[in-house]
Nucleic acid binder design. Structure first.
Lengths: 216, 216
DNA sequence: GACAAAATCTAACTTCTATTAGAGTCTAAG
DNA sequence: CTTAGACTCTAATAGAAGTTAGATTTTGTC
């Protein structure tokens, strides 16, 4: 171990300056490392993201990374977690905002909000999301328990939204919800990463898949 | 160069025994190498597919690969080309079969046939297609002219199908065809790689995106 | 069965990689 | 200014990667 005293390499998360003033210097470069890792993985895949390239992109020498992360894998895992965690938080937030309005439990409104939130996340988080949410992305090896759980939670959220929408007649029924969910997320990911403004893609997705109006 | 005499490493394609009897031994191991490369790239990404792993999977020593291919990159490029080429051929074949029937130019029938062909290709070609057709897969570096052209041709085919379907009222109009194409292919890729039988996925996709019946 | 070509192996090399230990520098608090 | 801790660099390690040249084996043909 390089740093045995306080060992910031152990914690995977970047604490959002809980106690005193702004983020410490270590927090900042840790963030910079995660960003660089996301960019590198997005561009060259997990296996192609070299520590040296990440270090250079973050303005460090390769060896210095080990002060912040225990290994290359831990760094990449941390950035993957960060990506899903943030996406999940955004989804939850979007749905919570809806709850404070008139359309509380309306499945149609909830699904639309989720679509927009997903596309917005794809647009804002860019490299993080490109890596994390891609359906069949080659992320070899055991993905790490925490990442797996977060990803599952994200998918479960969407399954729930789809089922509710089907029962309300907003989405085609008589089709396994899991398949619809895969189709939907795959469509959003593919079109969302094409670089178009999220609003445009959202409008297209809604026009394409939604039953034109209320079940009537 | 290792083999300067007849140099099979130069040609990227596997000739389908044009002249005499069955495929020569070189053709067979070349095919085995392409398969191994596809599997390895599908599992570990382009950068993570090591020559040694490919060689072992094909029952060879790493050095022997250079008799068949000029370099690692050329091997992988060849397998990528093989993937799109076959997918494109299947799509063309499916559309041509339709032309011999009553529903010659019906946009709806053509789109349905294309969806089924794409999902079937995803299922049959597996590793090849998983790598080639994935929307935003990290295939770093210049993709190679031939591969790029084939891929463009595939996308152009789909754009045409989508436009025709929109004009016929089979798909939601008023939305850029390119966006719809991305959504559609992304959906098919994502759901198609989930391991479900292609027919089931096709049915789900059709139920989800098609305007219920003819424009009437 | 001998011969030439095709196909594979062996054994090296170079380069790049992650990783480590220890020494050096910066930063903030007293 | 001093000092302790946080942070970063340098230099070196061991291993795995792609690649190559030459020897060796396999294959098909007269």
């Amino acid at each position: 171990m390089t740093a045995a005293s306080t060992d910031p390499a152990a914690g995977a998360l970047a604490k959002t300056d809980p106690a005193a003033g702004g983020p410490t210097k270590g927090d900042r470069t840790r963030r910079r490392l995660l960003d660089a890792a996301a960019a590198e993985v997005a561009r060259h895949g997990r296996a192609g993201a070299s520590l040296t390239a990440i270090a250079v992109a973050a303005g460090l020498k390769p060896g210095s990374i080990y002060f912040h992360f225990g290994s290359r894998d831990q760094l990449i895992d941390a950035m993957l977690q960060e990506g899903v965690r943030e996406s999940l938080a955004r989804l939850d937030r979007a749905l919570a905002e809806l709850a404070g309005q008139d359309q509380d439990g309306d499945p149609r409104a909830r699904l639309l909000a989720a679509i927009r939130a997903h596309l917005a996340a794809l647009h804002d988080l860019r490299d993080y999301a490109a890596v994390v949410l891609a359906p069949a992305l080659a992320l070899d090896g055991p993905p790490g328990a925490e990442f797996r759980d977060l990803r599952r939670a994200y998918l479960r959220q969407w399954s729930g939204l789809v089922e509710a929408a089907q029962q309300a007649g907003v989405l085609a029924a008589g089709v396994p919800a899991a398949v619809v969910r895969d189709l939907l997320l795959g469509a959003l990911n593919s079109a969302g990463l094409a670089g178009r403004p999220p609003a445009e893609t959202a409008a297209a997705a809604e026009a394409l898949i939604m039953v034109p109006s209320a079940p009537r």
